[in-house]
């Protein structure tokens, strides 16, 4: 007896998928606007990507190819578990190669490789409301979005500059979508913000615990908030990836020993592997014997 026969395709029942798809369509129609949806109980707790999983489950089809990354890596616990989950309940093909995926579910990073038309990026979002930390009342924040009253967002940036001399927010950096809604891009590093702007891919955001879905359709303006005299700037890394030598990519710090030895390597594991397979070598890398 097939153990998964009791589950519908991709775990969710069809009515739920319908409800979520409606929310997704609405979100696409109003870029950056947080659409409330009826978040379901999923077989993982809140805080482990249930929003992203519900969005993926509602859009995935048998011909899709799924990639799941967590902080850029395909091989961390969450990425592995979620990938295995969908392999089990949807029996879809999975991959670690960005270019081959049709759906990429991600926690806190955008792949380095430019995404193309026909690809969908599904973000896992903890707190969808960018104003939440300054204005705890949901009634107030909804009004602010409705009336486009975003002065408070700049207050937060002002406070950063006053306190640290520059805008200190380095992740979950607020953006303005299509000149209208201010959105939290999820806790991706601000380094990734420019990738959201005028992307050819569809970007969907799911927050399971907070019951919100929002979206950025392809070819949409996504502009990071800043001040005229303190313009938005991405992080700058001093050295390239130690393994593959890539520059202009987001790097993770890896501790090597307990004498403070460390190295910086690509956060995007697929990108790093691809480069090494193509023959690029970093200062601490080992030359690949033969191409994959």
């Amino acid at each position: 007896m097939n153990a998964v026969a009791q589950y519908n395709f991709a775990y969710l029942d069809e009515q739920t998928k319908r409800m979520i798809r409606r929310a997704i369509l609405k979100a696409i129609a109003i870029p950056g606007y947080q659409v409330p949806f009826s978040s379901r109980e999923m077989p993982m707790p809140y805080g482990w990507g249930t929003g992203g999983v519900q969005v993926t489950a509602s859009i995935i089809g048998p011909d899709d190819v799924l990639k799941v990354i967590d902080q850029g890596a395909d091989d961390t616990t969450n990425a592995v578990s979620i990938r295995a989950f969908f392999a089990k309940v949807a029996q879809v093909a999975t991959t670690t190669h960005t270019a081959e995926a049709t759906i990429i579910q991600t926690r806190h990073r955008i792949p380095e490789k430019k995404l193309g038309a026909g690809q969908i990026l599904v973000y896992q979002v903890p707190i969808p409301e960018p104003l939440r930390f300054l204005e705890p009342r949901e009634t107030e924040t909804r009004k602010m979005h409705a009336l486009e009253e975003y002065g408070l967002m700049h207050v937060k940036l002002y406070e950063d500059i006053a306190r640290h001399g520059r805008i200190a927010t380095t992740y979950a950096y607020p953006v303005k979508v299509e000149g209208r809604y201010v959105m939290d891009p999820s806790p991706t590093p601000k380094f990734d913000n420019p990738k959201m702007h005028m992307s050819e891919a569809l970007q969907l955001f799911g927050a399971g615990r907070e019951h919100r879905i929002y979206a950025v359709p392809p070819h949409t303006q996504v502009v990071s908030l800043d001040f005229e005299d303190h313009p938005f700037a991405i992080q700058h890394f001093e050295q390239p990836c130690a393994l593959c030598g890539a520059e202009q990519v987001y790097l993770d710090e890896v501790i090597l020993d307990d004498q403070g030895g460390h190295m910086y390597v690509c956060s995007d594991t697929d990108n790093c592997e691809e480069r090494r397979a193509a023959g690029h070598v970093g200062t601490l890398g080992v030359a690949q014997e033969a191409a994959e």
Partner: peptide, 24 residues
Amino acid sequence: TVSAGANVGERLMAVGDRHYGHIR
């Protein structure tokens, strides 16, 4: 929970002032 300067500057930011130096 926000600095005095931000308290005074908030209305300015709410009506579109985007120059930190000027607000301060």
